[in-house]
Design a protein around this nucleic acid. Structure first.
Lengths: 133, 133
DNA sequence: TGAGTTATGTTATAACATAACATAACAAGC
DNA sequence: GCTTGTTATGTTATGTTATAACATAACTCA
């Protein structure tokens, strides 16, 4: 049987998938409070930390928000493209580029452990929508 | 004569330079409150926004903190290497790599406007310190 | 079963950020 | 030089994000 923690993680993941867009921890909490009124921030943050650890969720540092990973099967950290118009996030995996970054910073002796790459801009559909208006 | 805003910006920059490490907006505020007890968060955030705009300060999205730019003369966004041990930040400028990123995301029609690249790890001196212990 | 350990729940508060409005400075036309 | 509009700055309040600290429950293993 799933532990309580795993159950919360599953619920959080469902909530994130339902949104399909960057969602704050507190928004998720309010979602879950429909069925579990007393759930508190630390519970949400613990579940999110576990999901991020598992690679099932990405944390968006530049938005202080979270998205469900869209391509479950990769271990590589993702490059996240964030549309500032509609909020859509696209994941790109580019291990070579990450290696380049690691090598670049290694020149001064830096040992890279975790790469955060977030690119803000406009997605294809918002760009088109903007152009025609 | 410098406007009030420019004065605050100068003071904030001095405080940031004095630290030489990532510093939160509230820490800066407490620093400035030595000479100006009533200064409030919006004043600090406005000054920081202006300094970031001018490229004199970088915002570290993954730390919710700020550092003074160490190489004043460039317009390119910097790649920031952050030591999780000592907090030191190193800036690297690599326009080619940013272009690669832009091209990569452009494949799906994304128009990149702002690149955020933060790499966590250990700097050379902390790595050495850790190895010899 | 009971002692030790880990996971989870709960309360409280810390830390980060900005909305909303008030006031002051400045600039342009009268 | 006044007054009117505009922009910059100050001020108050509050919203939002995140975690510390402690309590309780569940699990393990002798």
């Amino acid at each position: 049987m799933a532990s309580r923690g795993e159950q919360v993680q599953a619920n959080v993941l469902v909530a994130l998938l339902a949104h399909g867009k960057p969602t704050s921890a507190y928004k998720i909490m309010r979602d879950l409070q429909d069925g579990q009124p007393k759930i508190a921030p630390p519970t949400i943050y613990r579940a999110l930390a576990a999901l991020v650890e598992q690679g099932k969720v990405h944390r968006l540092e530049s938005l202080n928000a979270f998205v469900a990973c869209q391509c479950a099967h990769h271990d590589h950290p993702a490059i996240l493209s964030i549309c500032d118009d509609c909020g859509a996030v696209e994941e790109t995996v580019a291990p070579k580029l990450l290696n380049q970054l690691t090598r670049l910073t290694k020149k001064s002796g830096f040992a890279a452990m975790r790469h955060i790459i977030e690119i803000h801009g406009r997605c294809a559909s918002c760009k088109n929508a903007g152009a025609q208006s």
